[in-house]
């Protein structure tokens, strides 16, 4: 494990491939007239003052309940959305959304979408989709399918090249997931954003995809932003983990440390909610209450209405990040908020 930690320390010193600096995103301006009629003039703050950085060769896990802003954060990274405040930097240069990024900047970030089947044109065979990703924007031509490169890509994700002529509907979920990864690798990105890449898969398939992701990272040195609601998967794959709640990162740090000794009560609740596969273990603990309505955020710490350790202070003031070792946590009571975390 020390080797892993050394690796992440080493990476910290370099310029990150992609960096979010105090980014906020509210959804209101982009609403149509119709939407505004429905929901009044309220603006939902999907992302609130978030900073994070991803280096090539490392895996950053993003975890949190649904609606916590994981996917919005991913879209800010890929440029599908532009922040209202703060900056997105690619290799140190400020960039905006896809429209403002040059094709080569777009190609620095690869994406594997949550709904893989949706992310392929149903009328295109696999090789056409891969070719679209392989060729530079300007040189694309239909005759230019480079079969060697497509073969090579398919081999690198452990698929047989015969698959190249098939259509997405003819492939199984696991195969399609591999093709999606191949497409993301095609344009030689520095970072790949993976949105729930294994959530719809069977356990055996999930295992092979996780192994493949690890192999691909070792071979190509690519960085991953790994979004998942499955903490087991994140624990297995991630070097660093960012825990999100109500559009904020509430805790961030090296995966192993964070999972062994969570500092934020929310991280702790997430971990306790996982059902153990040993029937002898204690049943999982649920977290009462619902995530806050993003159009009407609670004052102070966003987690305080559900937090077992909340005090009056939490309801009044928003905590700042506190650094404990190489973990940063947004809680007044960390690391003492969680009783018994030192027992382990």
């Amino acid at each position: 494990m020390t080797q892993r930690e050394r690796k992440s320390n080493e990476l910290q010193s370099r310029t990150p491939v992609i960096e979010l600096q105090n980014v906020s995103k509210t959804f209101s301006e982009e609403q149509s007239v119709f939407d505004r009629l429905w929901s009044g003039d309220s603006a939902a703050e999907a992302i609130c003052n978030v900073s994070m950085a991803v280096n090539s060769g490392e895996t950053v896990g993003l975890v949190g309940e649904s609606g916590c802003g994981k996917s919005t954060l991913a879209k800010l990274l890929t440029g599908q959305l532009t922040p209202n405040e703060g900056h997105v930097r690619l290799d140190g240069t400020r960039v905006g959304g896809i429209k403002d990024r040059s094709p080569s900047q777009c190609r620095q970030i690869g994406v594997v979408f949550q709904h893989v089947r949706e992310s392929f044109d149903p009328r295109w065979p696999v090789n056409r989709s891969l070719t679209e990703a392989l060729n530079d924007a300007e040189t694309v031509s239909e005759g230019g399918t480079n079969f060697n490169e497509v073969d090579g890509l398919l081999r690198s994700v452990e698929l047989s090249p015969e698959i190249a002529d098939r259509y997405p509907r003819e492939l199984s979920g696991g195969q399609l997931q591999r093709v999606a990864l191949a497409r993301a690798l095609a344009h030689d990105p520095d970072v790949i954003v993976l949105d729930e890449p294994v959530s719809g898969l069977d356990m055996a398939t999930q295992a092979t995809i996780l192994n493949l992701l690890a192999d691909v990272q070792r071979r190509f040195g690519v960085g991953y932003v790994f979004i998942s609601h499955d903490l087991d998967v994140v624990r297995y794959l991630a070097d660093r983990v960012a825990v999100m709640y109500a559009g904020e990162i509430v805790e961030e740090g090296p995966a192993r440390k964070l999972f062994e000794h969570p500092n934020h009560p929310y991280t702790d609740s997430l971990l306790r909610a996982i059902p153990s596969i040993d029937p002898g273990d204690a049943p999982p603990n649920s977290l009462q209450g619902d995530p806050p309505d993003l159009t009407d955020r609670p004052t102070g710490c966003p987690f305080h209405p559900r937090c077992p350790a909340a005090t009056a202070e939490c309801a009044e003031h928003q905590p700042n990040f506190e650094t404990i070792g190489n973990i940063r946590v947004q809680c007044f009571h960390a690391p003492h908020a969680i009783k018994g975390s030192s027992d382990n």
Partner: peptide, 26 residues
């Protein structure tokens, strides 16, 4: 809104490319 169109846009493809190659055939 379909993800395959987003995927093409994320590859840095132009609107014309997306329209001609993805939208019109579909």
């Amino acid at each position: 809104e379909r993800e395959f169109v987003t995927a093409a846009r994320l590859l840095g493809r132009s609107r014309t490319h997306v329209t001609v190659r993805h939208l019109i055939p579909n």
